[in-house]
């Protein structure tokens, strides 16, 4: 009947529909634990990535130190090699082996057509050994979480 007043449910019905206290407590507990769990998961993520970054940083430091050490050795060895091939040493060695400087009479000259001009190949620059314009770091160290997710999705999609 459209005009019938709404009747108050009976106490039995009310009790039947009312959530049991223990059920409510369980739900609240579950929500709370889920929140804590989510928070801890996020913390774990932070700790995990932080630890990874720190380890990578230390590794980078260690590799740079190693590279520095090796490049120092290269520089020193280059200098030492030059010292051992110095003009004075080479001249003395040539004299010891019986060579004498060539005079005009000792040289035969020939005309060679189309001979290319002597090209001096310059040595690689010192700085190239030391400065890396783009040290190959994973983009993960530079991008936001969203960028990381998108990259991961795109990578998977493209694979």
């Amino acid at each position: 009947m459209p005009n019938d007043p709404i009747r108050k449910p009976s106490p039995k019905k009310i009790r039947a529909y009312k959530l049991a206290p223990w059920r409510e407590q369980t739900r609240l507990l579950a929500i709370g634990l889920a929140s804590v769990s989510g928070l801890m998961a996020m913390l774990a993520l932070f700790i995990f990535t932080g630890a990874q970054a720190a380890e990578a940083g230390l590794r980078v430091q260690s590799l740079i130190r190693e590279r520095d050490r090796q490049l120092r050795q290269l520089e020193a060895q280059e200098a030492e090699l030059s010292q051992r091939q110095s003009e004075e040493w080479m001249r003395a060695r040539a004299a010891a082996l019986g060579f004498t400087p060539a005079g005009a009479d000792d040289i035969d000259y020939l005309v060679v057509a189309e001979i290319p001009a002597a090209v001096t190949i310059p040595p690689s620059p010192t700085s190239l050994l030391y400065i890396a314009d783009d040290i190959a770091l994973s983009p993960a160290y530079r991008e936001t979480l969203l960028e990381w997710v998108l990259r991961a999705i795109l990578r998977k999609g493209g694979a």
């Binding site: 970054a53 720190a54 940083g57 980078v60 400065i131 770091l137 530079r142």
Partner: peptide, 10 residues
């Protein structure tokens, strides 16, 4: 120890 900062120092 942050890698980005290391490379920027270099």
């Amino acid at each position: 120890v942050v890698p980005v900062e290391i490379t920027s120092n270099l």
